[in-house]
Design a protein around this nucleic acid. Structure first.
Lengths: 136, 136
DNA sequence: ACATTAAATTGTAATGGTTACAAAAATAAA
DNA sequence: TTTATTTTTGTAACCATTACAATTTAATGT
């Protein structure tokens, strides 16, 4: 499990204590950058950590998001999803199968003058429609 | 109230029955294009329509969204917001005062080749940060 | 105008993701 | 080890949204 070491390193780098929960949550996000929900992470880790609590998952995800390691995205408005921050990229959610695809986008290219004076900390872009698979 | 007539006209145009609730909800969105929540609309209309139900607000907003008159946006992930569809534009939410600003953006300009084969039905872009007012 | 059918609205209860909070456990410091 | 701090846990509360059945309202046909 190379991601466990990577997770620990990332936490150290940010000055966060690397508890077992944090390492595993972060390792999961590194291994499965598929925008999982809090519950998906919880269900995936539960077999390994029998006493794991849902609250801890939320606390940890808040912590990681606060430290700019992860990003919280809301696409369907139903439940939050969490994404390892790599580079600015867009999300496409298929209305049929609900799967979320990443796509690259150069946000600097499409900027406008309206936001002078605004301090932009985070940029999100998401599309909706039908993915190629579901068009068949 | 010119917006009441405009609301009725819009409903007629889409082949939707123009009930009192629908007219008022739509007129409110036309008058206050400030991305209100379902509850904000409900609270605003309640004095005029004493028997109004929250469920009806949701039903109506679903209907309008289905008819492509309004668009549902989720920025904070906490509660849905509703916006009259005009043109593609971005939303900026201030982390401090939570106010949501509109800004224009040419989404065609920043497109990429990744999405060939995808049928894009809706494009959303939202930024977060600090607005000029809250930087003082 | 009346009866019949369909559509819209209402109220209540349930759902489900998230959060508050206090207690328990684990870790670090003295 | 003792003490202090941090982390984790479990339960209960919160709150936006939805399900659903009943009621009301509007449209249609006779």
């Amino acid at each position: 499990m190379v991601t466990l070491k990577a997770a620990r390193a990332l936490l150290d780098e940010k000055g966060l204590r690397s508890s077992a929960t944090r390492i595993h949550v972060l390792a999961y996000l590194l291994s499965y950058p598929s925008h999982p929900t809090a519950d998906e992470i919880y269900q995936a880790l539960l077999p390994k950590m029998l006493t794991l609590s849902k609250t801890t998952i939320y606390n940890t995800l808040d912590l990681l998001t606060e430290a700019n390691i992860t990003r919280q995205i809301t696409i369907d408005g139903k439940e939050a999803r969490f994404d390892i921050i790599i580079v600015d990229h867009g999300h496409f959610q298929c209305n049929t199968c609900k799967h979320i695809y990443d796509f690259s986008v150069d946000l600097d290219e499409c900027m406008v003058a309206d936001l002078t004076g605004f301090k932009v900390a985070q940029r999100n872009i998401y599309f909706k429609g039908i993915c190629p698979n579901c068009q068949k």
